[in-house]
């Protein structure tokens, strides 16, 4: 009898450093499965962010570059322009992508760079200890919004998928979450589709994944999962916001 479940080849044996209940590990596995299924391991270059996932290359077995905070889309642009045959993905958090790297992601998407961005949105800066991000929910308490995020002072959370979908340039922009098995299945489909658009040299692709951060939210993993469904999902609607077929 053959194996029916195994670790993807694109993943290494490294023991995880992520906190219990964090969804980074799920996202990593989905990406690795897609790399395996598409048979692109030998021509894939990942770009690790600054944030909790800075060491993500320890979990992957393909070539990797490590970016500065927010600059992964510019690095991916550099790679794809000089080596269009490589498959390139960036993996970025919300502080990285929606704050310091906003310019880089918008312009890369607008140029229609042929790489894939996996955007982990957990409404908080993780590695620096739970500060407010551009995606932090109204009234959400963080270490730099101890009385809750006040939209009158710092605005409303940025919806990155909708923002990028508003660009005229064709692209594949989708938001999913990782907090229940049924969502994980959809997230996997979205990631695979994003990589396939890249493989076909069609367009820029971004998969936003609503994720948990039990440690910095001060919640149990179960409560964090519930919080995503109850607080985040009504504001951050799931679904495809743009596909290249739209045009």
């Amino acid at each position: 009898m053959g194996k029916i479940f195994q670790k993807p080849e694109a993943l290494s044996d490294t023991i995880t450093h992520y906190c219990p209940g964090c969804t980074h590990g799920v996202a990593h596995r989905l990406i690795a499965e897609v790399i395996d299924e598409l048979g692109i391991h030998g021509r894939t270059v990942g770009i690790a962010p600054v944030g909790c996932a800075v060491l993500m290359y320890n979990y992957f077995t393909c070539d990797f570059q490590e970016a500065a905070h927010g600059r992964a889309p510019a690095m991916a642009t550099g790679i794809k322009r000089v080596r269009p045959d490589l498959m390139v993905f960036t993996y970025q958090g919300d502080g990285d992508l929606a704050s310091i790297g906003l310019s880089e992601i918008v312009h890369a998407a607008n140029r229609g760079e042929k790489f894939t961005t996996i955007f982990i949105n957990n409404a908080v800066y993780g590695m620096t200890g739970g500060q407010m991000a551009p995606t932090t929910m109204p009234d959400q308490r963080t270490t730099t919004s101890p009385f809750g995020r006040k939209p009158s002072e710092v605005g409303m959370p940025i919806r990155m998928a909708e923002l990028l979908a508003s660009l005229e340039t064709p692209g594949y922009i989708v938001r999913q979450t990782l907090v229940k098995p049924k969502y994980v299945t959809r997230a996997k489909k979205a990631i695979k589709k994003a990589f396939m658009y890249q493989m076909e040299n069609r367009c820029f692709s971004m998969v936003e994944l609503l994720s948990t951060c039990p440690t910095n939210w001060g919640m149990t993993p179960v409560a964090a999962t519930k919080w995503v469904e109850e607080k985040m999902m009504p504001y951050y609607r799931l679904g495809e916001f743009k596909t290249p077929e739209d045009d």
Binding site: G78, I79, R81, E104, H107
Partner: peptide, 25 residues
């Protein structure tokens, strides 16, 4: 390859990405 980047910050990382692939840039 010719590309006008959106800022000098971005350009320096386009250089980084390309250079890290071993291409002359």
């Amino acid at each position: 390859v010719f590309l006008q980047g959106e800022s000098e910050v971005a350009v320096s990382y386009m250089i980084f990405g390309a250079a890290a692939c071993g291409e002359r840039v």
